[in-house]
Design a protein around this nucleic acid. Structure first.
Lengths: 213, 213
DNA sequence: CTCCTTACCTACTGGCGAGTAAGGCTACGG
DNA sequence: CCGTAGCCTTACTCGCCAGTAGGTAAGGAG
């Protein structure tokens, strides 16, 4: 006949539509201000479908978090060539990170802003992912430091430095949202220069100390 | 007669008590999960008092944000000695920042986690404060770079680098919450070494570039 | 002592939004 | 052509919590 305005779709497709809508709505309004009604409206589906397929609002949010976090981590790890030198690994990792954020602003917002600020299991999950990213960077730093002969004093700080580096990348990603004319590649190279060169100095014993207190 | 369990206190004192309680509750549960009943309970005051003195829940939250953001910024700017060299200024600023976070965990949580993740006027206000911090650092970087003769290519990045630096400090502050055995002074010196040395290399033309793509 | 202001309370309402009951429509196997 | 399984909807309930109505008492002014 004429076009069926209401198409019956297989569960798998609907779930994806719902998750896409949920990410969009959560990223716009945050977890609490997002209403299931709006999600259902954006998804083009009635509310009970969401409950049938994805469970409660908490479950839905958790599903969003897991999917987006996994995507992000896969994008980053997938961008790394392990056979290269540490600095090139970091370079490619940063490049992949900025590319992902540029192409999935909403995913990034949900992960970075909304998920972490909810206490409990959500932030735990995201923070665990973040921890894995920091560990990745930390391993890189440790490998570089030990390869160049440092073991004791300088390596004590690597984990903290890795955390600082990850934080600076995140912050730079936010700054990027207001300055879209810059390429992700440029960002990555700025950060490499700021942070990798500083780390190199540190490893080589060229340290900064306050002149007088 | 016997002890008056309910003391009648001047408005000014009550307002401070209520704000203190509100910061505590908001930092624990986040804006939405915090209930006015709990705030009133912690403050040792009945709910209508809050509405009489501080207005709606939104108003209350806004008042918390403004007070804590002002305190933080004052702590940082107050820690800086403008007559010193740029690196020492940054050093003192970072020291003051970590000291504040260490002594006011709850304030920090409210500002960094809760306020930003709410859209609208709250995040605007906090982000404006954050922007002022970035501008402060940026000015420092620009002054250093121009003093050493760089104007064109390297200075284009200073604002981004300032954003990255601020982000790394924030991230390090979070990391600190899980590693309280480190002193704030140590954190500041790690960060100086990572970031200031890297910036110094950049200013002096010692840049990192990818070996091959 | 009385009046009035200001501090403070108990006990409610009203609405918003998460979650659901109950049933309709369509496709497909037998 | 009948059943049954799975897609999908309308139209509700119900708890929670922001916000309030209305009242009590302390203490200063005159």
């Amino acid at each position: 006949m004429h076009v069926q305005r209401v198409k019956r779709l297989p569960r798998e497709v609907r779930e994806r539509q719902i998750l896409d809508a949920a990410v969009q709505v959560f990223s716009r309004h945050g977890y609490h201000n997002a209403s299931m009604d709006e999600v259902s409206e954006v998804a083009g589906v009635s509310k009970p479908m969401i409950y049938a397929y994805l469970g409660s609002k908490e479950d839905l949010f958790g599903a969003c978090i897991r999917r987006e976090a996994t995507r992000l981590l896969e994008a980053v790890t997938g961008g790394i060539r392990v056979e290269l030198a540490p600095d090139m690994q970091l370079w490619h990792g940063l490049g992949a990170f900025f590319r992902f954020v540029g192409e999935h602003r909403e995913s990034w917002q949900v992960l970075h802003r909304q998920a972490i600020s909810q206490g409990g299991p959500f932030s735990d999950e995201v923070l665990a992912m973040r921890g894995r990213a920091i560990a990745l960077v930390d391993a890189l730093l440790v490998r570089t430091a030990t390869k160049r002969g440092l073991d004791e004093q300088a390596t004590r700080a690597t984990e903290a430095l890795a955390a600082a580096l990850v934080g600076s990348a995140e912050s730079l990603a936010d700054w990027w949202l207001d300055h879209p004319d810059i390429t992700g590649r440029t960002l990555a190279s700025w950060l490499m220069n700021l942070v990798w060169m500083g780390f190199g100095d540190l490893v080589e014993g060229s340290v900064w100390t306050p002149t007088n207190d």
